[in-house]
Write a protein that binds this DNA or RNA. Structure first.
Length: 839
RNA sequence: GCCCGGGUGGCGAAAUCGGUAGACGCAAGGGACUUAAAAUCCCUUUUCCGCAAGGAAGUGCGGGUUCAAGUCCCGCCCCGGGCACCA
């Protein structure tokens, strides 16, 4: 053994060892104690930085810990390889997306290995490879056949100058990031997945996810946004010029039907399908058309925002409030989005936004809820009254408490056939088509005779053609490839055209965790038996930024695949851990999440070279609570290095003692310092095990190991120490090595072998707590007077509350601070403190 | 704007159930060892008053509950994540 800590040597040695022995290859048939640990697979963006590393290091530490606890752990890895950046790079540099992506994968794989992060690479998936996307396409077809994939018109960001669809990321302050033209909203035929059919199940099943962070479940609940309300049909008043409308009913959804007698106008979304027809030829037409095109330049966030002033325009048309028979004006409002029915009734007296809108455009306001002391006077109101109260001006419903009136009003609507009680969700269907090249082609064929036809199973995959022009031309890149577009109809065999859109990359990542179990199986998408054995995933680990979209889509896919009968579970991930991001100050001095574009990335390569992977791992885990964001500090890395070196040196100094297996600790033979260290060992084991099994608090686990090492050093062991002292020291050092091994595996393996153990640290058992070792004869307690600590006393651990109180009351400091005062109360908290309240 | 988090020393942070605020580490200062440096080891390190003993204040801000509040309640301020085509 070398006095110096030769990290490069031992890290290379053990990484090779793990690979050669297949330590992380998982036998899928052994499911008695299975543990599926999954880290969100990365997008191959280039080089990994230390911010990415947090995810994999946390995962690897969990994998190693669970292995030591005897689990058969599955830890696979893959690549979310389709996406916008590779396509943008191709436009810029000319390197085909496939080439740059595969390059990046090779680099990132090496980096993972250099970190000591180990996976079962036999099960690797790469979403841009035909072997994978064939089955993404197959799943699309299953959904199409079940009516879960459908087409409809929808708005997209459109750059009129580039003649191309833009991703939200490419729109900066309402302008195209390439040419600065003002971006518009343009309605195009798009593919959707009917996730709204699953809204209720996605909501209900959140209650079963006990292993998910509460905040993620809350975010999903709010995103799904279930609300109970009423759908009411307002009849469109016929035009005076006799032109007939194709639709004469304007349905709207409201959660506040109790206010409907105060409805004084109605607003439509600018995208309302029949809007143009409704106003054609009216004097208001020009103004409305102008308004529609102005609204198309606003983002949804601005349109929904309460801080941006809402605009609207009168259509010239009226609708009838079916409760009152009154005609109310029909407006268009930019705050109304084309979701749900695309129409909202407006009650200015009882809705803040309607109040502001009515005041701005001088629309009538009508009171329909009176407050409990009946003191509301419309003329004196300065804001909408949104509290509960009593219905007024509401016909037969007058005098009813407004909440109670809702069911009566719904009943009335149902009896008179103009409305019904219904449930509305905020969740919208998932738009999955992209007018881009670098994605899985949507496997649909358009035939003049047969219409829309899914590609047959035998003809899958629909391969992405190479040699495609990526530069924007106004069409999907695939549409320009005649070889790709021309095909024959799977049904009638006549010449047909392919769908030229590709799928959202979220589709690829919504089922990869199912594919790992049979990634090489060319006969089916999912091996049902293997999936049923291994899923749900026991532990999913990834960034909080995926709290809603990815996790919701993965849950949706799992339910669909379950409905297809391919799996017998409903939720993909039993436990979820969301880690915080690593941030660092950028060149401008501000703190940002680590990313290439902010110029604040720290590469692991140099750090690993200078300090070793174990140091980088230890520091990454030590930086702070893993669920919170953390700021990277280059100089603090040194501390982790020093600690590992210290462990190394201690073993090097005492190899003789540490190799003497005849030294066995015996609690009866220990003197006080030995007994204290022995207790500390077991307190540490208890604390660290708790940290790893609970909240994944690696940072406090590592602190505990540091404290334990401080305690070990206090024993000041030498060759002349007693056998009992040596035995306790030896026991403590073995525990230190085992406890640190999930975090710093290379040095742990090396030292474990140095101590004469065979079979590797992963095969060693995780230390068990000896309860008796935790016992103390005396405990320290604080003495407080009026909540301020005035002294510390040591009391026998078996002392009763009365005995402790008596000891406290005769304490000198207590006497001093209570002198001349009246003792009101004495509170004894065993094991902690005594508080004496005086006045 | 809406939804979800967060705010504790010079810095990263700890405090598991309302019970001794600042564990552990970084940085800084002092010292030992050394021809010297590195490495290592020891000491100090929330702020203010004090030679000291000791005392007072203190967990973003303002209020409240309690014997006791970083922790619970009400109202603000600031920072981060998400907002459906970045992944």
């Amino acid at each position: 053994m070398n006095e110096k800590y030769p990290f490069s040597e031992i890290e290379a040695k053990w990484q090779k060892h793990w690979t050669e022995r297949g330590t992380f290859k998982t036998d899928l048939t052994d499911i008695a104690q299975k543990y599926y640990c999954l880290m969100m697979f990365p997008y191959p963006s280039g080089k990994l930085h230390v911010g990415h590393g947090r995810n994999y290091i946390i995962g690897d530490a969990v994998v190693r810990y669970k292995k030591m606890r005897g689990f058969n752990v599955l830890s696979p890895m893959g690549w979310d390889a389709f996406g916008l950046p590779a396509e943008n790079a191709a436009i810029k540099t000319g390197t085909p997306p496939r080439e740059s992506t595969l390059n990046n994968i090779a680099i990132m794989k090496e980096q993972l290995a250099a970190w000591g992060c180990c996976y079962d690479w036999d099960k690797e998936v790469t979403s841009c490879e035909p072997e994978y996307y064939k089955w993404t396409q197959w799943l699309f077809i299953q959904m199409f056949n079940r009516g879960l994939a459908y087409k409809k018109k929808s708005n997209v960001n459109w750059c009129p100058s580039c003649a191309t669809v833009l991703a939200n990321e490419q729109v900066v302050d309402g302008q195209c990031d390439r040419c600065d033209s003002v971006v518009e909203q343009k309605a195009l035929e798009q593919w959707f997945f009917k996730i709204t059919d699953y809204a209720q199940r996605l909501l209900d099943d959140l209650d079963t996810l006990d292993g998910w962070p509460e905040r993620v479940k809350t975010m999903q609940r709010n995103w799904i946004g279930r609300s109970e309300g009423t759908e009411i049909d307002f009849a469109l008043v016929p035009r005076e010029d006799g032109v007939e409308d194709s639709k004469t009913i304007v349905p709207c959804f409201t959660t506040r039907v109790d206010t409907i007698y105060g409805c004084t106008y109605m607003s439509l979304a600018p995208e309302y399908p029949e809007l143009r027809e409704m106003i054609a030829g009216l004097p208001q037409e020009e103004a409305v058309l102008q308004f529609i095109s102005d609204s198309a330049k606003l983002t949804n966030i601005d349109r929904e925002s309460d801080s941006v002033e809402k605009k609207g325009v009168f259509t010239g048309r009226y609708v009838v409030n079916p409760y009152t028979g009154d005609q109310v004006p029909l407006w268009v409002g930019d705050y109304v989005l084309m979701y749900g029915t695309g129409a909202v009734m407006a009650v200015p007296a009882h809705d803040t936004r309607d109040w502001a809108f009515a005041k701005k455009y001088d629309l009538p306001i009508k009171l329909s809820i009176q407050n409990p002391d009946k003191s509301l006077v419309l003329e004196e109101m300065t804001a909408a009254y949104t509290e509960d109260g009593i219905c007024c001006n509401s016909g037969d419903f007058d005098g009813m408490p407004n909440r109670g009136a809702i069911s009566a009003m719904v009943k009335f609507a149902e009896e008179n056939n103009f409305g019904k009680g219904t449930v509305n969700f905020r969740l919208r269907d998932w738009l999955i088509s992209r007018q881009r090249y670098w994605g899985a082609p949507i496997p649909i064929v358009y035939c003049d005779h047969c219409g829309m036809v899914p590609v047959g199973d035998d003809d899958l995959p629909v391969r992405l053609p190479e040699n495609v022009e990526f530069t924007p031309t106004g069409e999907s890149p695939l549409a320009a490839s005649e070889d790709f577009m021309n095909c024959v109809c799977p049904k009638c065999g006549e010449p047909a055209r392919r769908e030229s859109d590709t799928m959202d990359t979220f589709v690829d990542s919504s089922w990869y965790f199912l594919r790992y179990l049979s990634s090489k199986d060319s006969s089916q998408a999912i091996d049902s038996a293997a999936a049923n054995n291994w899923l749900p995933v026991d532990q999913y680990i990834g960034g909080i930024e995926h709290a809603i979209l990815h996790l919701l889509y993965a849950r949706f896919f799992t339910k669909v695949v379950s409905d297809l009968g391919l799996i017998d579970f409903n939720e993909p991930f039993s436990k979820l851990f969301t880690q915080g991001m690593i941030c660092k100050k950028g060149p401008d001095g501000n703190l940002y999440k680590m990313s290439k574009s902010k110029g604040n990335v720290v590469s692991p390569n140099e750090l690993i070279e200078n300090y070793g992977a174990d140091t980088v791992r230890l520091y990454t885990l030590f930086i702070g609570p893993p669920e919170k964001e953390a700021e990277w500090n280059d100089t603090a890395v040194e501390g982790s290095y020093r600690f590992l070196k210290r462990i190394w040196t201690r073993v090097w100094q005492h190899t003789e003692i540490l190799n003497d297996s005849s030294l066995v600790p015996n609690m009866d033979a220990m003197d006080k310092p030995e007994r204290d260290l022995f207790r500390k060992v077991h307190e540490s084991v208890q604390k660290i095990t708790h940290d790893l099994d609970g909240a994944f608090h690696f940072h406090t686990a590592i602190s505990s190991i540091m404290e334990l090492m401080n305690a070990v050093d206090e024993l000041k062991i030498t060759g002349k120490s007693s056998d009992q002292a040596k035995a306790v020291f030896r026991d403590a050092m073995e525990k230190v090595i085992l406890l640190i091994s999930p975090f710093a595996p290379h040095i742990a393996e090396e030292l474990w072998a140095e101590l004469g153990h065979e079979g590797g640290v992963l095969a060693a058992e995780w230390p068990e707590v000896i309860e008796a070792a935790l016992h103390r004869d005396e405990i320290q307690m604080a003495l407080q007077v009026n909540g301020k600590v005035r002294d510390q006393i040591s009391v026998p651990s078996a002392a009763s509350k009365e005995e402790i109180e008596a000891l406290a009351l005769e304490n000198e400091a207590v006497l001093k601070w209570t002198e001349g005062k009246t003792i009101r109360k004495v509170i004894v908290v065993p094991g902690r403190l005594v508080n004496i309240a005086v006045s």
